[in-house]
Design a protein around this nucleic acid. Sequence first.
DNA 1: TCCTCGCGTTGCATGTGCTGCAACGCCCGT
DNA 2: ACGGGCGTTGCAGCACATGCAACGCGAGGA
Lengths: 257, 257
Amino acid sequence: MSQSVERALRILPLLARGPAGLGEVAEELGVHKSTALRLLRTLHEHGFAYRQPDGRHRLGARLFALAAEAVESLDVRTVAHPHLVELNRLTGHTVHLALHQDDEVVYIDKVESRYPVRMYSRIGRPVPLTVAAVAKLLVADLPEAERRALAERIEYPRHTARSTPDAQAFLRELALVREQGWAADLGGHEESVNCLGAPVRGPDGRAVAALSVSAPSVVVSAEGLLELLPLVRRTAETIGREYSGSPHAPHHDEDTP
Amino acid sequence: MSQSVERALRILPLLARGPAGLGEVAEELGVHKSTALRLLRTLHEHGFAYRQPDGRHRLGARLFALAAEAVESLDVRTVAHPHLVELNRLTGHTVHLALHQDDEVVYIDKVESRYPVRMYSRIGRPVPLTVAAVAKLLVADLPEAERRALAERIEYPRHTARSTPDAQAFLRELALVREQGWAADLGGHEESVNCLGAPVRGPDGRAVAALSVSAPSVVVSAEGLLELLPLVRRTAETIGREYSGSPHAPHHDEDTP
DNA sequence: TCCTCGCGTTGCATGTGCTGCAACGCCCGT
DNA sequence: ACGGGCGTTGCAGCACATGCAACGCGAGGA
């Protein structure tokens, strides 16, 4: 829609991969160096890019700050976090919290067993829609029409032999998930990893988020993991209740103070 | 430099504060609604903004993903993290890792005592240059000229009675920090919080990062905290050594695969 | 039920601001 | 000393972003 903005935005993922010189950027964008320079300068002025001592460009701190601020303002996360930690403490497994945006499902929080803070690693990355437990939960909760449309639109990569193969199977799976109120991913994403998830419901009964526990099958069998179901569901419900009857500050979106 | 890009970038922090409607965005930017619409669309196409079911706009997942990717590619962080966790385990205090960018010093990692993952809260936010231990360390390491220029350029907010008051005092403090090879912030940022930091040095001896432990004075006295100095310095040195003699993959910046 | 208001959306003419070019300065390697 | 690579600047032309005005739509009120 907007050429220059488009180009500027294309620079960001490029820099995310590692520092890059002006020439590289220009070539990658297919524009003249001077153009790239001006775009980078604009990014720079706003703190989205940063010029290393050696002259190469990196992503700037502003981006981290923004991402952090945005993630915080997703208030489900705030409410949920302590419960995720508790769930992690009780089970010892990795715990995820995910959200639905556009055609994507994204992790917005993660508590890992051994190194708790490694969470950054995946946060923000889209999760495979067709296999992940949290994704199935969130998609299953969409209105019929949207769900169908989405199912037709997306692709069905075969991560493993157990991955959902096509739209039809996916819709069947979603129906099941809807009915039972929880979801599992038994080796559908990575052969030897099982997940178990439950939806976090808002005041109107719609799923605002979903959480899951994941464990490699060498640690717990699928059956063993399923024993956690009551705990997982209870946790999700608790979060939902707390989120709905929020006696906290709702947002912070006053306009004119 | 580039008007439309500039406007687009101004939208992002705006959305970070919470969801906003088209009108709001347009007014805030001082542009016509249609203009704002097109900018938002461009942001949307690239996943930087996202349209909520209710029509209001939020920051999109792409931003989180980028920030995560970028933070990961800061390889000091990767090397340092386990050591930060260990330092946290040994001391029980909050541990920070910070980096210098432009005129800012930014936290890029944080391990908090009780809820390890609350780290997100501050990561990316610029730290007060004149008081924080990590900031003093990083600035102290700059070449003389730059250090002076910086000292003249920045402001000296009085967070507490102990905050560094002016450029002169700051430069004195920096000289001290340079000489002793470590830095402290005794109530300079928040009255009752003390910090103790040490520089992480790269292969060329220059500080590539700095780490610090922070503790409220009600938990440990300033003297008590200073007893941790050997441990803190040793940790910083270990990280520096590991970072310098990196037998790891250096970056991942191949261009044409 | 109909009217009205607010909000997001679209097509179009205008001129602004972005673009690419070419030339320059600078640093580094040979 | 010289050449090549890289970032930078001024400039002229025109693409492209902009603002305007008109439309569609849904919500709320009479």
